[in-house]
Design a protein around this nucleic acid. Sequence first.
DNA 1: GGCGTTTTCGAACGGGTGTTCGAACGCAAT
DNA 2: ATTGCGTTCGAACACCCGTTCGAAAACGCC
Lengths: 211, 211
Amino acid sequence: MMDFDSRREALLAAAASVFAARGYHRTSMRDLARASGMSLAGMYYYVAGKEDLLYQLQRSAFERVRRGAEEAVAAAGRGGVGGGEGGPEERLRAFILHHVTFFATHRDEMKVLSHEAESLTGARLEEVRELKKAYVGLCDALVAELDAAAEAPAGGGGTRLNRHVAVYTLFGMMNWIYTWYDPAGPVGIAELAETICRLFLNGYAAEVHVR
Amino acid sequence: MMDFDSRREALLAAAASVFAARGYHRTSMRDLARASGMSLAGMYYYVAGKEDLLYQLQRSAFERVRRGAEEAVAAAGRGGVGGGEGGPEERLRAFILHHVTFFATHRDEMKVLSHEAESLTGARLEEVRELKKAYVGLCDALVAELDAAAEAPAGGGGTRLNRHVAVYTLFGMMNWIYTWYDPAGPVGIAELAETICRLFLNGYAAEVHVR
DNA sequence: GGCGTTTTCGAACGGGTGTTCGAACGCAAT
DNA sequence: ATTGCGTTCGAACACCCGTTCGAAAACGCC
């Protein structure tokens, strides 16, 4: 009916749904058995254990956002949707739009990624932390390019914002979404992404471009 | 040696520390007994149970941030630290500064407030949700005043940002702090608050004041 | 049919969980 | 010395947890 990999991914998907709804630690293996339609013991044929399940889930989700973001940024650099060349600002916009869209279209996995960041232990925790660091670094590099392109126009004015702090704050805007956003509500994904883009770009660049 | 209330608050403080470090569900009552210096059974003289402990903690923390924020905003309205009268922008700045400062000076409780928002159940969950809604509403009202004070200067230009979305995004910037901020690091609390103020005020107001 | 491999799962194990209960404590008032 | 009261806690209870194991089922292949 289904091969090994499909069955395994179905299990991961069911786990993502339950983890997102009830939280990792509150969820028992028996809950997952019920949600996936497998027996309690049967799951252990596909996964090494509960923590391994969370690890596979986070790893897979992280690699997909990362790949998607890289492609979206590259596409924006090549000219993106509408013609043009695609400067640093367009590339950052593409990153934000992709992140927010991915968040909204993969709610469960992204909530697990955001909320259960410290639920892993030992080597698995360290490995996922590295993935996250690489992903944040990708965004940080885009903001750095934005900085370089603006190159202190007059020298005067107020002090520049700390880039790393600004980037973490940007991720705060984006990753907090799972806390309040209702995809069935009146606010669309595009509007949400546009709000975050404006808040960050106007706010961050204001100290660089204007005044 | 200590009266009932002090002993109880010491227990709550110990619980906040352990909950922040290991998470609510991972923490056992035996962990709390060890951290507080009481015996396992002894804690039940001061608290009705584990979930009641979390509830008391969240309720107490929420009421303190709320009261503090109200006072900070009122003080800014009266002229704040430096003279002046204190318009809507100064009041919102005061709110943000207070929230960020409170976050940094009460790390454990605020992490428990942010991260364990869905760990309560039933009536207790609902009650804390009401507290949160009131607190967010306080901030939302400040932003609304900012809107009113700006009153669409020309009518043209781009569309205005959805205020509620902007407010949730602002809380994202602030509440994500517990995820990455290191108070022992090079970034001070004042700088952190200033970054968030600029990102929000420049970004949000840009569509209202400029262009 | 028979056979080897892949897949499933009922039943059990050892251990940790939140909570309760009754006895014991310290200590001021009688 | 005794009473009563606020406080502490060792021991136990009933339950749920993640994981294992050996047997049974399902399957393709000869």
